[in-house]
Write a protein that binds this DNA or RNA. Structure first.
Length: 539
RNA sequence: GGCGCCGUAGCCAAGAGGCUAAGGCAGCGGAUUGCAAAUCCGCCAUCGUGGGUUCGACUCCCACCGGCGCCUCCA
């Protein structure tokens, strides 16, 4: 399992920050020019996990996306502070801990560790703070008290509720009408002034974890921790608040209500919501996409069934733990899969679809090997350009193409972090560089061309620059099979086999040469005859 | 029922009022190769259906069909 990528986000360049970035905000339902509240500085708060079960892939979509957001902002000259909260006290933790016969803190520790391990595997080392709800109880209690003092909340039988009727702006994020809300029902209903009111503090029942408060022992409601912790770490108003689309209501709506009623100013300037990961059966398409087949009468029963089985990777669907997914797919594959589509769109998840991402990554890995054959240097040792301001000299076809692709990549990122379009430019970059190697025969040992090699290096530096913004190709991926290739004995035997095959080829004994290659292929070993000799890869 | 999103090639997926509708996977043809692998070049979509607005729409509006999400403390 890979650990964090070295270097974290590219260092701030100290240059003027980009002015072209546009960010879609759920509040305005439109893309807005990005202008941080304090020049040069950006605060980001992302709603993190409730740590009661192992994280599944859906929990890691936000971190992957905001890791890229932070990298891009940093690269663009901003100083970014990114906060991800850990909800470690909540009904779900209480129930799960009881079910397993362990304490809530123990459960929280275990699941927080699981989450952290997954983040590390994905190379996400850009998060600055992981505040836990239970570490911030005094701040939370103060926050609630302030809301009561200002008349926006009321205590009732050990609980405290937010009085939605007092907030005329309530519903502005999700576009909901207070009157039509069902709200939290159950036994709390009769304590609340309105069904739409939500708990800020929940009085403890016997045996439940609790903290002292002016309203008796209890614990925070779900939303208040985020209001309190975001204020502590980022201030009353900060730049970007993110989270899954499912949190828009009620969580973020309630957060806004709490924070803005308490402070009398906006909580966050931009609200970014990522689309949800959806599970889909391997068979058939999803959504309305099989409409035509069905309408035409050629009903694909399997496809229809698959569509019906598609569903959010939520708690009820029992999505498999992320750590299991890592047994099948590399972190890099999962990152590419997530970043290949737009962050606001839902992502339909299946092994086959992630498998496609894995295949497409091979294009890059093969190019990196080719680069090493040509230059003797590892792609991973090429210093990444990390200054947005420095332009690429566009002399010659290749560099012209490299500069253009870089420009398009950056434009895509400026357009509300369009990573899908940006990824396409990475493929185009590699194509341009492969073309250069082909045309100048750089793999041919007898044809070293200093100018072409310099161009290749420049192109690779740009590839590294752009890829690092997506946290891709930061360090070599070593598969178990590839690791075996380093074995001295294996290497020696392969050298012998290749030598014997070379002799056979020299003698035009292609039957033997091909037999060797075919038999090796059965062992998952691929031979490639190149200008400089034959090399082999495994896996 | 209320609110919202979506429907682009065999599959995944960007995009966009007029310029060649990105890229990936799969497939086909060619170059290269002893043959391959890899690489490169080329081919493969008129954008769910029906109307409307416009000089012009796949892109805007309406309707319909189909799918999905939220309204239940799910990232």
């Amino acid at each position: 399992m890979a650990t964090s990528a070295p270097g974290a986000a590219p260092p701030s360049t100290g240059q003027p920050a980009t002015t072209n970035l546009r960010v879609y905000s759920t509040l305005s339902r439109s893309k807005e020019p990005f202008e941080p509240i304090a020049p040069g500085k950006v605060g980001i708060y992302l709603c993190g996990p409730t740590v009661y079960k192992p994280s599944h892939i859906g929990h890691l979509v936000g971190p992957v996306i905001f890791d890229v957001v932070k990298r891009y902002l940093t690269y663009s000259g901003y100083q970014v502070t990114w906060v991800v909260n850990i909800t470690d006290i909540d009904d779900k933790l209480i129930h799960e801990a009881a079910k397993r016969g362990i304490g809530v803190p123990e459960l929280a520790r275990e699941m927080t560790a699981d989450y952290m391990t997954n983040l590390a595997a994905l190379g996400i080392d850009t998060i600055d703070h992981f505040p836990r709800a239970t570490d911030n109880i005094p701040e939370i209690v103060d926050f609630i008290q302030a809301l009561i003092d200002k008349g926006f909340a009321y205590a009732a039988a050990g609980d405290v509720y937010f009085d939605v009727a007092k907030d005329s702006a309530y519903g502005k994020l999700s576009g909901r009408d207070v009157a039509s809300m069902q709200g939290e029902g159950g036994e709390m209903a009769d304590r609340k002034h309105s069904v739409a009111d939500f708990a800020l503090w929940k009085g403890a029942k016997p045996g439940e974890p609790s903290w002292d408060s002016p309203w008796g022992p209890g614990r925070p409601g779900w939303h208040i921790e985020c209001s309190a912790m975001s204020r502590r770490l980022l201030g009353e108003t900060f730049d970007i608040h993110g989270g899954g689309l499912d949190l828009m209501f009620p969580h973020h709506e309630n957060e806004i209500a709490q924070s803005e009623c308490c402070h009398g100013q906006p909580q966050a300037k931009y609200w970014m919501h990522n689309g949800l990961m959806q599970a889909v059966d391997e068979v058939g398409k999803v959504g309305g996409r099989n409409t035509r087949a069905s309408a035409a009468g050629s009903v694909d029963a399997a496809g229809e069934q698959a569509a019906q089985e598609a569903g959010k990777m939520g708690k009820s669907k029992g999505a498999s733990p992320f750590r299991d997914l890592l047994k099948t797919f590399s972190p890099e594959t999962i990152r590419l899969f997530i970043l290949s589509s737009h962050y606001r769109s839902p992502i339909y998840f299946s092994d086959a679809r992630i498998g496609e991402a894995a295949k497409s990554l091979e294009t890059f890995y093969r190019f990196f090997q080719r680069y090493e054959r040509v230059t003797g240097r590892s792609y991973y040792q090429v210093p990444a350009r990390n200054q947005r301001g420095s332009e690429v000299a566009s002399t010659g076809d290749t560099l012209k193409s490299v500069a253009e692709r870089r420009e398009r990549f950056l434009e895509a990122m400026d357009d509300d972090f369009n990573t899908g379009a940006a990824v396409a430019e990475l493929f185009e970059l590699v194509r341009a560089l492969n073309r250069l190697v082909d045309e100048r025969h750089l793999e041919d040992p007898g044809k070293k061309d200093a100018a072409a090699l310099a161009t290749l290096d420049e192109g690779v530096a740009v590839l590294r620059e752009l890829a690092s913004l997506l946290n891709l190709f930061q360090q070599p991926v070593v598969s178990a099979a590839a690791a075996g290739a380093n074995d001295e004995l294996v290497a020696g035997l392969m050298g012998l086999v290749i030598e014997l095959r070379a002799d056979a080829r020299a003698a035009k004994n292609f039957a033997v040469a091909d037999k060797i290659r075919n038999k090796l292929a059965e062992l998952k070993i691929t031979l490639a005859d190149r200008p400089g000799g034959t090399d082999w890869t495994i896996g």
